[in-house]
């Protein structure tokens, strides 16, 4: 049996999970395609926050080497998650741009962004 700890040590995970659930709810139930996209970005942001809070080590400093703190690695937080998320954010913005471009093309073709209406329009020949 897994023990639950509702104290300070676990609250960050609950916030991340809540954000993920909001994103998933928007992706599942909203009918407007752009709202689905916003849900996807919310989900993505939850993953970013999860990675960033995974880098934290208590009583440690930011990973910029300072003479006063010393050269020992134990004095600094883990730099790898920061680095991975730094690139992931910019790539996420670019892919968001491509997704928005697809939505513009869909709106030009069908004059709507409602997914049920688009499914209906796709079946009938033009």
């Amino acid at each position: 049996m897994v023990e639950f700890d509702l104290s300070m040590s676990q609250y960050a995970y609950f916030m991340v999970v809540l954000l993920m659930a909001i994103g998933l709810y928007a992706m599942l139930t909203k009918r407007n395609l752009f709202k689905k996209l916003v849900g996807m970005v919310t989900f993505q942001t939850a993953i970013y926050i999860f990675f960033i809070q995974g880098a934290v080590r208590l009583k440690s400093s930011v990973p910029i080497i300072d003479e006063e703190i010393g050269m020992s690695a134990a004095q600094y937080v883990n730099p790898l998650p920061h680095l991975l998320i730094l690139t992931a954010i910019v790539v996420g913005i670019s892919t968001l741009g491509v997704a928005a471009a697809f939505l513009i093309v869909i709106h030009r073709r069908f004059k709507t962004l409602d997914d049920q209406a688009i499914m209906g329009l796709m079946k009938e020949p033009d």
Partner: peptide, 25 residues
């Protein structure tokens, strides 16, 4: 599933057993 994750800020978490010591030093 969060019950199985290490505490936030735990210096001995499995994610902190990697190559990053080398980079910092």
């Amino acid at each position: 599933a969060t019950g199985g994750l290490p505490d936030r800020g735990n210096p001995e978490a499995p994610g902190h057993e990697n190559v990053w010591h080398y980079y910092l030093e």
